[in-house]
Design a protein around this nucleic acid. Structure first.
Length: 432
DNA sequence: TCATATT
């Protein structure tokens, strides 16, 4: 045989890790996951059953997801059950189909960006066929013949796509190009729609933003309390259900690579790379296992995931602020120091020592409530106060957040540190 | 000089 062995593309079964999610409707609400599991196991291998429950009541919504270890098994379940069986208590036969986005996901489709304008199919396939069998390649072209700088490519297996992605993304420059290629998973239809909506919104909100007619939701849209599983490239899919709110007003999605770091840019852009290259950028390439991280990204258009400060924390004064990067400082001082605070209620809500954060460069449109929302994910917020100009009522863009524990404050610091325009700073952290 | 774009 030839040199080296080809990817274990054996006969059929295991495309390793390529589990498939099925949606099942017409499931009687009284059935348990265990019951469903044993029932479906008569027809196909099923790893898991997840009943879809009402968020508030936690009761079954009459449907579930099945996780099958392979497409073959999933197909077995579909053909054996879809419209074939009516469970006791259901009004019509089971509906068994691929969950939203599954089919697209199974295409192993990649988006390729930063292609030269004059690129031809042969060049792209030559490069990418090193990592697997290309099933489909489509370079997007504009008016003439010139490429729009991007393409879609399908591989046979996820492994092939993943290895190409890891090998090429941000690393490989095409002939005559000064920037490396971008390779990421193509958007699903849902993500596409979400992005389109977002784009429309951001353009619409470009109008003279007279006054705050809409809710500022910059932080409010944060995926509370966790750092997104950044896959190393690509946008954060805008469609994280439920989480997405209104578009940001000021700190919009603009590709402003001077002070905004989006993952997509961060990866490929020279001007940004040094920041990330200091080793603080969370990327977990290989760790996507068999997962359903489908749209598990945060829905925060403007607020990107935190990037820790290289080399610990800054050693200069907290108030630097240069380009609108905000800071948090630990403050054991009294939150009600300034007379210009929004003293609606004179509640003294100072936390224990080490649990009071002083926050610089809060977005203009934030009030106490928004500030509290932004930080509540990290612990019990005793109070959140944005300071406002007494005369005009305009935010001074700084304030306090007090937690019930220093630990919560620490968590807030590490989570919020470097959040786009917000970086977190604390004396305590620095000293220790 | 917004040039990184999504079938």
């Amino acid at each position: 045989m030839a040199e080296g062995q080809k990817p274990p593309n054996t006969d059929s079964t295991s495309s390793s890790g390529d589990s498939v999610k099925l949606f099942v409707g017409q499931v009687p609400k009284h059935m348990t996951e265990a019951q469903l599991l044993s029932m479906f196991k008569e027809f196909a291998l099923v790893d898991e059953v997840n009943i879809i429950k009402d968020k508030a009541t936690r009761t079954s919504r009459g449907c579930c997801f099945l996780i099958c270890p392979s497409r073959q098994e999933a197909d077995k379940a579909v053909s054996a059950c879809h419209n074939k069986k009516t469970l006791h208590g259901a009004s019509s036969p089971l509906q068994v189909k691929y969950a939203d986005g599954e089919l697209e996901r199974l295409e192993h489709k990649l988006f390729i960006g930063m292609l030269p304008k004059n690129v031809i199919d042969a060049e792209v396939s030559a490069l990418f066929s090193k990592y697997g069998n290309i099933k489909d390649l489509q370079i997007l072209r504009g008016s003439q013949q010139t490429s729009k700088g991007c393409a879609f490519l399908k591989y046979e297996t996820k492994e092939q796509a993943l290895s190409a992605l890891e090998a090429i993304n941000g690393k490989y420059k095409m002939e005559g190009s000064s920037v490396p290629l971008v390779v990421k998973w193509a958007d699903t239809e849902k993500e596409r729609n979400a992005r389109r909506a977002q784009k429309a919104q951001s353009q619409a909100s470009n109008v003279t933003n007279t006054d705050s007619t809409h809710q500022p939701s910059l932080f409010g849209a944060l995926p509370m309390g966790y750092i997104p599983p950044y896959n190393g490239f690509g946008y954060q899919a805008p469609g994280t259900y439920g989480l997405m709110q209104y578009p940001l007003s000021s700190m919009q999605n603009h590709p402003d690579f001077h002070n905004v770091i989006t993952p997509a840019q961060g990866n490929a852009y020279r001007g940004i790379t040094p920041n990330l290259a200091t080793g603080m950028a969370p990327r977990n390439f290989g760790s996507m296992q068999s997962s359903y991280m489908g749209s598990a990204y945060p829905a925060v258009p403007g607020l990107q995931y935190p990037i820790a400060y290289p080399g610990g924390l800054m050693n200069h004064r907290p108030l630097v602020g240069s380009h609108g990067s905000a800071q948090l400082a630990m403050a054991n001082s009294n939150p009600t120091t300034s007379s210009s605070a929004t003293t609606s209620s004179a509640v003294q809500t100072e936390g224990p020592p080490g649990a009071n954060l002083f926050i610089y460069h809060i977005p203009q449109e934030f009030g106490d409530q928004e500030l509290a929302n932004a930080f509540q994910a990290f612990g019990g917020v005793l109070s959140a106060k944005v300071f406002v100009d007494k005369a005009t009522g305009v935010s001074k863009c700084f304030g306090f957040v007090s937690y019930d524990s220093p630990k919560a404050a620490q968590t807030a610091i590490s989570m919020m540190n470097g959040c786009q325009h917000v970086s977190v700073w604390s004396d305590a952290y620095q000293v220790d």
